[in-house]
Amino acid sequence: MSNGEGGGIGRFIKESALWRSLFRQPYPNTSRTRALAVMNNVFLHLHPVRVKRHAVRYTYTFCLGGISFFLFLSLTVTGVYLMFFYVPSVSRAYQDIQAIEASVAFGTLVRNMHRWAAHLMVLTVFLHMIRVFYHGPTSRPVSSTGWSG
C-alpha cells in the first residue's frame, strides 16, 4: 500500500523494534516525510531540504565553474605525473617530450589530457567570468561568493 502498511508477515516485520530502529521514518512519499529523510540523514542533512527550482536549472550557470574546477584538478593530477619525466630546460625538453610520447606508460594519453585541459580551462574560465559578471553577485550579501569565484 502507498502508506507503507502491509498485511501479515510484512506488517510484523515493519512493526518490529529492529526495523523501526533502522528506519526511523516512513518511506519518503509525502513532502513531510521527504523533509524528514533529508533532515535525519547524516550525509543529506548538510544540504538544504529544498532549493528553488530555477536555482538547479542547467541554464542558470551552465556548470562553468564546476567544469573549470574539474579541469584544474585534472591539470594538477596529470601535471604531477608528467613532472616525473619532464625537465623544463633548453637542453633536455625536446628529448623528454620524445621519451614521454614513446616510452612512458600512458605518456601520450596523459600529455594530451594535460594539453587539452589547459586549452579548455582558458575557455571555461573566460566564459565563467562573463557569466558571473552578468549575474552580478559582487554586492552584499553574496559578494564573498562573487570575489572568490
Binding site: T30, S31, R34, A35, M39, V49, R50
Partner: peptide
C-alpha cells in the same frame, strides 16, 4: 534569522 525553519518546512 538562520532560515532553517523556512528550509525544512515541507509545505512552504
Amino acid at each position: 534569522l538562520c532560515g532553517l525553519c523556512a528550509d525544512v518546512c515541507p509545505e512552504g
